[in-house]
Design a protein around this nucleic acid. Structure first.
Length: 647
RNA sequence: GCCCACGUAGCUCAGUCGGUAGAGCAUUUGCAUGGUAAGCAAAAGGUCACCAGUUCAAUUCUGGUCGUGGGCUCCA
């Protein structure tokens, strides 16, 4: 069988396959043929073409009958192939330096690759350099990467002989009789492939961090050492990638939170308990106010409930049985146990049941900025995005069964509207189904799950199913958005619940005069203010749109002679509802302008002699490096208009 | 909670192979009265996270606690 085609630097590569389909790659791209599915001579030819840039005749005999693919770094699956090859390279280097190392799994992931390793020596960050040096050496050795197929038993014997207990465990659980391994030099690994053809193709790499990871992700099993890394075909792309990571770090909300004086944590107050400083608190207030108003516009009623409640409430709700791991120890008051509330629902339900409800009251939508306290293990706390006390924009909708889908649709629209307003257009939607630890009948769960699913389907909204990720009382739709470093965070959640109405014996009087059981929809759109603001800070890199900016206008009086005038302008702006500060410090103007720019203030207004005479300010907008005179009235009008434009 | 790393001035970080510490920025004061990304000078500021242990002596070594970072597990 023959492949025909040619590879050349001045050409597009086209390879005609036996079934007469053709594949092609643009010139200058590196080719990674699928090792094992292509003959060795063809591999060599392709490699030679890459190395020498000379046209090569590919009218070569295949050693094996098979279709093959041309994969470049940027083609689908190319990165995975490349990164997985890099993880083999890393494993080989580790093995050379630490002969007792045993390997678990080493896949490509979204931003690179890792390998989980079991070995005696505890790696520290400095050790990574040594491993990198060894990797460079192996790249220089230009080892051929060869695929071998063998029987499963044979493979077990091979890995068992090498002491690779994790590979043996994986092999024993694998279906099928035959497996593939990849060899490069003295190193071999169990692997499905594909890989690059030679180690020299792994142009540029960097080991990023080491971390602990449980074998099989099970916290009861052994903790292995995981090394994370990234690789690219050339140095330039690696540098560019590292620069992006560095750029993202600058937007980290924990860093910006300090720089912009938005929030802090105090050792005295406790881990995971954020303290909102004036600029952060006002940002939070703006979001709360906006959210509350939007809820009122949509027919929600306001709720407000206390931060603690008696144990019985959480016994009835099931929280003590299903959620106690996340609840704090009780507080003893007059011989009774009280708990800090981990969720708002049980308390809010008491408002619904405080009087007899009619079908005319449904859907009954109750909204609250509800603060909850949840125990989070110390190691999971993370800035504002994972805390122990947080405020949810929480609402519970009590409705009849035939209202569910409409209500879900409303909530979904509302959610997407809110995310849009805050500029989050990139989001991933998940449908989470019944978890192991849960209450209620299968029928209820099915009904609730299909209600969510139908709404998504009929809205043509793409989503991923997250099996077993629902809450103990019901399934949910989760919407996740990303932080600066690409980590996904769950914010919005919409949950359908047949169980709490049952447990609390919630009723409404139907048209027929009989009692009926409502269904509850739990939902939080922004999720928690803390997490949401954390991501918001990163999303905007601290450059909040005008309507959110903690300080909208910074007034700078040129000298002390203009201090009174600046005070007068400030009052006019404050009267118009604009958040305005004066920097009247005894510093040079350049210094104060620079400072205001550093604070990402959207409008910097300078007042000097000239401006006082003309009744103007000298306005410099964020992102511009020139200023122009504007009357105070025009300034107010301009800011109000920008504020109205939201995004 | 687990693995690894870390904790020095408000911030960013030096430093002490065991003899109680330094810079820049920020702060305060004085001078300069400034026109759009750092004016000049001086001062003040630290139980070297906390608690034990070893030692003549601990910020430095050991252990524990608290906290932080990267992950794992878990989650808004």
């Amino acid at each position: 069988m023959k492949f025909t085609g040619s590879i050349g630097v001045s050409d597009t590569v086209t390879l005609t396959l036996p079934d007469s389909s053709a594949v092609s790659a643009r010139k200058g791209e590196t080719l990674y043929e699928v090792v094992g599915k292509i003959g060795a001579s063809l591999q060599k030819a392709a490699l030679a073409a890459r190395l020498d840039g000379e046209p090569v005749d590919l009218s070569l005999k295949a050693e094996r009958d098979a279709a093959f693919e041309v994969i470049t770094f940027d083609s689908p699956g190319g990165r995975d192939l490349f990164w997985h090859s890099a993880s083999h390279l890393m494993a080989q280097a580790v093995k050379r330096r630490y002969p007792d190392a045993k390997f678990a799994i080493g896949p490509a992931i979204e931003g690179g690759f890792y390998y989980d390793i079991d070995m005696k020596a505890a790696l520290s960050p400095e050790d990574l350099q040594g491993i990198e040096a060894e990797m460079e050496k192996i790249v220089g050795e230009d080892l051929e990467v060869r695929r071998e197929e063998m029987g499963r038993e044979e493979a077990i014997a091979l890995f068992d002989g090498a002491g690779e207990i994790y590979k043996v465990e994986m092999l024993e659980e694998m279906p099928g009789d035959s497996v593939s391994i990849y060899r490069q030099g003295e190193f071999f690994d169990l692997c499905r492939g594909p890989h690059v053809m030679r180690t020299s193709m792994l142009g540029a790499f960097k080991l990023l961090s080491i971390a602990g990871a449980y074998w099989r992700g099970d916290e009861k099993r052994k903790m292995l050492q995981r090394i994370y890394g990234i690789a690219f075909p050339d140095r330039k792309r690696l540098e560019a990638h590292l620069a992006i990571i560095e750029e993202a770090r600058k937007r980290d909300h924990r860093k910006l939170g300090r720089e912009l004086d938005l929030f802090s944590f105090s050792n005295e107050v406790g881990a995971g308990l954020p303290l909102w400083h004036p600029h952060g608190a006002v940002l939070r207030y703006i979001i709360e106010r906006f959210s509350t108003e939007e809820h009122l516009k949509r027919g929600y009623r306001l709720f407000s409930v206390p931060h603690i409640a008696k144990a019985d409430l959480y016994r009835t709700s099931g929280h003590l049985d299903f959620y106690s791991d996340n609840m704090y120890s009780p507080i003893r008051i007059d011989e009774q146990d009280y708990y800090l509330k981990p969720m708002n629902c049980p308390s809010q339900i008491q408002i619904f049941t405080s009087s007899i409800r009619s079908y005319r009251d449904l859907p009954y939508r109750g909204f609250e900025m509800g603060t909850v306290y949840r125990y989070e293990r110390s190691g999971v706390l993370h800035g504002l995005t994972r805390v122990r006390g947080f405020t949810q924009d929480d609402a519970h909708i009590f409705c009849s069964e035939d209202q569910i889908e409409d209500e879900i649709r409303n909530v979904l629209d509302f959610t997407l509207y809110m995310l849009d307003v805050f500029g989050f257009s990139e989001r991933n939607i998940y449908l989470s189904t019944r978890p192991e630890k849960s209450v209620g009948s299968d029928a209820g769960w099915d009904l609730a799950t299909s209600a969510l699913k139908n709404t998504l389907d009929s809205g043509g909204i793409g989503y991923t199913v997250d099996p077993g990720e629902g809450v103990f009382y019901g399934p949910k739709i989760d919407i996740k958005i990303k932080d600066a470093l690409g980590r996904e965070w769950q914010c919005s959640t919409i949950q359908v619940d047949f169980n709490l109405p049952e447990r609390f014996d919630i009723n409404f009087i139907g048209r027929d005069g009989a009692k009926h059981r409502p269904i509850m929809i739990h939902r939080a759109l922004l999720g928690s203010l803390e997490r949401f603001i954390g991501i918001l800070i990163e999303h905007y890199g601290g450059k909040f749109p005008v309507w959110l900016a903690p300080v909208q206008v910074m007034l700078i009086n040129v000298s002390e002679q203009e201090a009174a005038a600046a005070g007068g302008v400030r009052q006019r702006l404050l009267d118009a509802g604009l958040r305005t500060e004066i920097d009247g410090r005894d510093e040079s103007m350049g210094y104060r302008v620079r400072d205001a720019i550093g604070r990402r203030v959207p409008y910097i207004a300078v007042i000097g002699k000239k401006e006082i005479e003309e009744g103007t300010v000298s306005l410099r907008k964020r992102g511009e490096n020139s200023s122009k005179p504007v009357s105070v009235d025009d300034l107010i009008g301009m800011i109000l208009a920008d504020q109205e434009a939201k995004r």
